[in-house]
């Protein structure tokens, strides 16, 4: 579990840019990288791409960069990265010690736990860097919110609890915004469908990059104080849920959609406390019976490919 292996696979091209500037600064954001923030790269206060800084550090080129040598922001970022690297290295050492002292099956179990913890930590980091849309909790006059990823996690879990069902992509949007976007005949949201058509298989274009991203949003009042400002809509009305599931052939589609809706509705109300207007369920795959868990969800063999 090396830290370096967990870094995102950015452009694998050389970090050296041509020209005079590049001679001074091997990881200078040249033209090729200037769209980094557009693509979602994290930028340090000095303007450098965090990913490129990591890349240079991995390639042992950071020390030769004049900017990095004199920049407190880059230095601080590298210090923190080094600290994380040390923690991971210590974890690996403990892993090897454990392997020496335990049997193979225990090793596998331990490795799985470490992998799980790492994945969860990275999920938290990813969530902080990309908190996504925030959605209203409670009454319209309340100023309480939940990020979409956290809510989706809970709703997916509710659907997963059904035997022979595996929940996949889950997206939640304010219902008012959906109506406004749907009324705009020029750019209807690609994933919007009436809830009564829940059993239809969605088309392949239904993804996070759908037309919803064009819906006007604003930063909530307190958000600018955070490094990763949350983008929310001003609406505090109910939300629409779009959930993809896969299931074994023991289900009929109408029965599956109804059961998933019941579970999700209950979870939204009792576990979260968010008002839901519609739940759009799409069956996107069929699971083999061998993956079905009679207690709900899927067996261990299916957990590794939980998301698709």
């Amino acid at each position: 579990m090396a830290m370096k292996r967990n870094r995102p696979s950015w452009d694998g091209g050389p970090v050296h840019e041509g020209g005079q500037g590049a001679a001074e600064s091997p990881i200078r954001e040249g033209d090729r990288f200037m769209d980094g923030d557009v693509n979602g790269d994290e930028l340090l206060p000095c303007g450098r791409s965090l990913a490129l800084l990591w890349q240079a550090w991995d390639a042992e080129q950071a020390d030769s960069d004049l900017h990095v040598a004199g920049c407190p922001h880059c230095a601080a970022a590298l210090d923190r990265l080094q600290a994380l690297q040390d923690l991971v290295a210590a974890d690996e050492t403990a892993d090897r010690d454990f392997e020496a002292a335990a049997g193979r099956s225990d090793n596998e179990a331990f490795g799985s736990r470490v992998e799980s913890v790492t994945a969860r930590v990275m999920d938290v980091v990813r969530l902080e860097l990309r908190p996504g849309r925030t959605l209203p909790l409670g009454e319209p006059e309340e100023d309480a919110w939940i990020v979409e990823a956290a809510l989706a996690k809970l709703l997916r879990k509710a659907a997963d609890a059904l035997p022979g069902v595996r929940a996949g992509s889950c997206r939640i949007r304010p219902a008012a915004r959906q109506d406004a976007a749907f009324d705009d005949s020029d750019s209807p949201p690609s994933w919007h469908r009436d809830a009564t058509h829940s059993s239809e298989t969605p088309n392949g274009s239904a993804d996070e990059s759908g037309a919803l991203d064009t819906v006007p949003t604003r930063a909530v009042g307190g958000a600018p104080f955070f490094q990763a400002p949350m983008v929310i809509t001003p609406d505090r009305g109910p939300v629409d849920v779009y959930l993809e599931v896969a299931a074994t052939l023991s289900w009929t589609v109408p029965e599956l959609a109804r059961s998933v809706r019941e579970r999700v509705t209950t979870a939204a109300d009792e576990t979260v406390g968010i008002r839901v207007r519609a739940i759009d369920v799409s069956v996107v795959d069929v699971l083999d019976d061998e993956f079905a868990d009679p207690l709900g969800g899927v067996g261990p063999a299916g957990e590794r490919s939980h998301r698709w």
Binding site: E42, A75, A76, R80, V125, E128
Partner: peptide, 8 residues
Amino acid sequence: FADVVRGV
């Protein structure tokens, strides 16, 4: 954690 990896 995001602040940590940013070094801020």
